[in-house]
Design a protein around this nucleic acid. Structure first.
Lengths: 194, 194
DNA sequence: TAAACTTGGTAACATATGTTATCGTCTGCC
DNA sequence: GGCAGACGATAACATATGTTACCAAGTTTA
């Protein structure tokens, strides 16, 4: 969960280089499944180029729950830490270049890093960020309407709307593709009343 | 963020005792505000007895986002760590007995603990749990209907339904009190068809 | 003890959102 | 070049959910 912070925390860079040889670089087309729902996650995923989504199958309906882009790392945390079946699938949206680091090396890396001064603060910052991210997503569902969540996406993470097919965004916002279309057309009409 | 794990991780117990003298014990009635939305969190909150909610004001509408009970600890993490205005209010639901530990002591405690062997694993486990909690809440909004979320509450955390007034639960589920009443009566009808 | 407040149920109506179906465009592929 | 599938817009109708209003039973408080 650390490599995507190597720019933010320069003291991690040597470790990145050291573990580079254990990472498997793969170049894959769109819609390649990197981790299947129900399987156990055995590796950490780092996005060099392209774009990825996490999704789950709910009674035959595909629901996207998160997007990842260049320089971001991910895994199914719960599956990775607890060796339990992953609750979601991880698959590419665009043709992508991915680095995979097997779990054994992640564990070795963590053990090495635990001696690094200041590492505790780094790991706390990383985990706190993730926790706050999910909390904000969750609060947004309690507080905002789907239209407001779409506006938030537009304002705060427009790259998602630009790069990701709309039907993935719809389920991520908690609505159907039909309703997301309605939201967009409503916003477009509103803007034309200038 | 640690004291509520002192039972789970016995090696923390001595620190709990050591810092007990810096904790302020207060006994407060229901609806006592412990942290106001917009203010900066300066202390960690531990629930000895009673029950607490986190909530925010959205255009005059009160929305509950989380509940806490005996032996749980909490704070506005983002406000506490970053010294930014809290996004939510923390207030008691029932008359409660609360322990408050000022931030300076939390920091001291963290510094001391960082030398404890195995502490890294503990803190990672604690943060991972919280992260997964919020992720599950968030995924539930994408995947489930309000009725399903109410059923989940009934099955997984019935104590919430038993102890907390229904209008708090309604906003927590993302619906109005009227609709939660409908959900309950629908479920009751379903069950009576035996 | 009476008034005020809190809590929760229900009805009637309004709005938001889902479902199903149809159409058009684009893109990859053979 | 054409065909199949992916993607997105829209309409018509069905269902879910919100809004407002009213009622009733506790509970707190003056």
């Amino acid at each position: 969960m650390l490599f995507h912070f190597k720019d933010k925390f320069p003291q991690l860079a040597p470790y990145w280089d050291k573990y580079l040889e254990f990472q498997k670089r793969i170049e894959v087309p769109a819609k390649t499944v990197l981790l299947e729902e129900g399987k156990i996650s055995g590796q950490y995923i780092f996005v060099e180029k392209g774009c990825i989504r996490a999704a789950l199958n709910n009674n035959g309906v595909d629901k996207t729950i998160q997007f990842f882009f260049e320089k971001e790392g991910l895994t199914s945390l719960q599956s990775f830490l607890k060796n339990t079946p992953s609750l979601f699938t991880i698959e590419t949206i665009e043709p992508s270049i991915i680095y995979l680091l097997p779990k054994v090396y992640v564990n070795k890396l963590m053990a090495e890093l635990s001696g690094e001064p200041g590492f505790l603060n780094i790991i706390l910052a990383v985990f706190a960020e993730r926790q706050l991210h999910y909390m904000h997503e969750f609060v947004s569902f309690i507080r905002d309407t789907p239209e407001q969540r779409y506006q938030n996406l537009l304002n705060e993470r427009p790259h998602i709307i630009q790069r990701v097919p709309q039907h993935y965004i719809a389920s991520y916002l908690g609505v159907t593709t039909v309703h997301l279309s309605r939201i967009k057309s409503k916003i477009a009409k509103g803007q034309s009343h200038f």
